[in-house]
Each structure stands twice: as structure tokens, then as C-alpha cells.
Amino acid sequence: MTNENGSSWWNRSSVELFRYDNLEDIDLTADGSPILRFLVCLVYSVVCAVGLMGNLLVLFFIRVRKERKKSKVNFFVLNLAVTDFGFVLTLPFWAVDTALDFSWPFGDAMCKIILSVTVMNMYASVFFLTAMSVTRYWCVASALRNRNGGRSCSVKWISAGIWTLATLATAPTAIYSTVSNVTGEKLCLLRFPGGQYWLALYHIQKIVVGFVVPMCIVSVSYIMLLRFIHTRSLTSSNPRRRSKLTRSVTIVVLSFFLCWMPNHAITLWSVLVKLNAVHWDRAYYTVHTYVFPVTVCLAHTNSCLNPIIYCLMRKEFRGKLRGLIHRGGE
């Protein structure tokens, strides 16, 4: 999610999302109500607090307590915690921006930095979730086949590749993000020299690279995993284990889909409007003014759900957390 999908998203429902070519001609008085802005700020604050706490616990258990056990999945979990931790650190900036009615107070340099960090960590988080799904299938399938998986790529090289891809996907944001003066207000947003069509391509990249392709890979990986374990005689003797794995897989896929799909669906609608495939109408305005901020908040919550899903739901991590709490209470 970008904060072109973040704080500026909401304001941009009156700016770039409505197909205006000249930003100076926009009337920004039609933004959402102060109550809605307050609720968005509140959600950002809660997500930031929960995300910081959850991801710090993950980093503590995996890195400080040396709980990696040479696990490929745990190494990706570690990187996922780093990306989500960096992502939630940007939320206070967007909360202030929202509270000030989307008037960016931090200057042009911070606009580029915060917007780029937000986008890069969004891509990295999705990519690591995808890598974890593929790795989980490969590890379980190899174990049930009594194989060691053969020769495989180092997780460190895969992680380096993921960070490289996330950086490349973020390049347009880093180049074209800027603070623009719109009707006397300083807004942190994207200004492409090619106008609305380049912005539409940018959104298409975000939808395809940041959601459609990863969602397909995650879904196929987990479907193959469930099909594999259900056809193995080893799991048939342990229905409880099979049920727990099925439930955890369902939670992973549903949380990823439900957190991101609404936002990307509305973003796709805006792309169709920019490309004149769909007409601008009152429904479009209403959705972007009142529904879109809710989808932004929902997408942000994925960064605090990830540590809960991938770590705190695992028995070994819950045991470590209970031990930490007991020692802290002594």
C-alpha cells in the first residue's frame, strides 16, 4: 500500500483519482468528515502500537533468543517482521497528515522518504508472505516424502532478491513523489509528467505485482499443500494435526485476501475511470470519500496481523511468550 494509497489516498479522492489534469483546479472542500478523519487517525495509532509490539516480539524470539533453528520459514518470518516493523513506523506521519486535513507538514524530503519507505515495505511484506507460502509447501512436501528437498537456493539470496524487487517496484514512488501546493494546501502525493495515464499504469503495477500475482501464488501453494497432506497416509493417522494445518492455512489466505482485496478493488475502479473505461459518477465520489479510507485502514491492519498469524499462533512461540510474561511478573 502506498500512501498514495495512504493518507493522500483519501484526499486524492478529490484530486488525482477524479481524472483532473490540473491539480490547481480542484476543490478540496469535499473531503470526508472530521469524525471519519479522527477514526482513521485512531486506527493508525492502534495499528502502530499493536504492530510495533507484535513485530518486536517476533524479532526478539527469532533473533535475540536464537529461535531460528535454521528454518527457512523462520528466516522469512524474521524479514517479514522487519518489513512490517518499518511499515508501522510510518503510520504516525500519516496520522498527523490526516489530522491536519491532509496538509503535509514535514517537507518535501520527508514526503519522498516516508512515502517510499511505506511503498517498499508494502511490496516486501507481500513478497515475503508469498515466499513463505512456497517454502512451507516445499518443506512439508519434502518431509512427507522423506527427502531433504535437494539442492535449493539459499534463503539469504532469496531475501536479497525480494528486497531488490521491492526496491525496483518502489522506484517510481521515490522519483515522482513530491509536495504539491493545491489550493493553498501542501499535499504529499505523486506527480507523473505523463498525467493520469502514467498514474493509471502505476496503479496497475501495484494491483498486479502487489496483489494479483502474489495472491495466485499463495493460493496455489496452500491448495497444493492441503491436497498433498490429505492424500498422504501419514496424515490420515493424525486427523487433529491435519485439521490444525487446514485451519491455519485458511486463516493465512483469508487474512491476506480480506485485508488487501477491498483496497485494490477500489483502486482498480479508479484506474478504469482514468482510462475512460468507466464514467465518473456520484457513486465513485461517495466510495472514494467514505469507503476508501476504511479499506486503507483495513490494509494497514495486515502489518499487525502477520506476527499474530505466523508466530503467536504457533505453539513454540506461545510457550516462549508465556515464559517471558511469567519471568516479567516475578
Rank of each mutant, 00 (worst) to 15 (best):
L190H: 03
V155M: 11
V117N: 05
P92K: 06
L268E: 07
V140F: 12
A95F: 06
G107Y: 06
L91F: 13
V273T: 02
L52Q: 01
T286F: 04
T286M: 10
S233N: 13
N238L: 04
T267V: 07
M215I: 00
V208F: 02
I251R: 06
F127W: 11
H326W: 12
S219Y: 00
R63T: 03
K156N: 12
D97Y: 03
S14Q: 15
A171C: 12
T267E: 05
A283P: 06
F317S: 08
R63W: 06
K186W: 03
R19K: 14
N121A: 09
T170N: 11
R318L: 12
H264N: 03
R37D: 08
V253P: 01
T98R: 01
W104F: 06
L199W: 04
T29P: 10
W104D: 03
I204V: 15
L89P: 04
K315H: 14
H230L: 13
P262F: 12
T90W: 11
S243H: 14
R37K: 13
F61I: 05
S116Q: 09
G210T: 00
W9Y: 14
K70V: 08
S125M: 12
Y222F: 10
V208P: 03
L57P: 03
R63C: 04
D84V: 00
N306Q: 07
M1L: 08
K274Y: 10
V179L: 02
R247W: 04
Y202C: 11
S13Q: 06
L129E: 02
P193D: 02
S236E: 15
V291Q: 08
Y20P: 05
W269V: 11
S142H: 11
R242S: 13
F211R: 02
F60S: 09
L168T: 13
I162F: 06
H288F: 14
T164G: 03
P172H: 10
L91D: 03
S221E: 00
P239N: 07
V126E: 00
S7A: 14
L56F: 12
E4D: 12
F18V: 06
R191S: 09
I26Q: 13
R327G: 07
T167P: 02
S154I: 02
C297S: 14
L80Y: 00
K66P: 06
L78I: 03
T98P: 00
Y176F: 04
M110F: 10
Y197A: 09
N306C: 11
T246L: 08
A277T: 07
L245W: 01
T183G: 08
W157Y: 13
L312F: 09
L189H: 01
I325C: 09
V40I: 13
V117D: 06
P214R: 04
E316C: 07
K274I: 03
S14A: 12
L254K: 07
H300L: 08
C48T: 09
G51W: 00
G107S: 05
S71F: 14
F257G: 05
A109H: 07
S243E: 15
C216P: 04
G319Q: 12
E316H: 10
G195F: 00
E67C: 12
T135A: 15
M313A: 04
Y137F: 15
C259A: 15
G184Y: 08
S142V: 11
F256V: 02
D108L: 05
I204A: 11
A131N: 04
T164C: 09
S125Y: 00
T135M: 14
R242M: 13
S221Q: 00
A200Y: 03
K69G: 07
R37W: 08
A283K: 07
V96P: 01
G329D: 09
D101P: 01
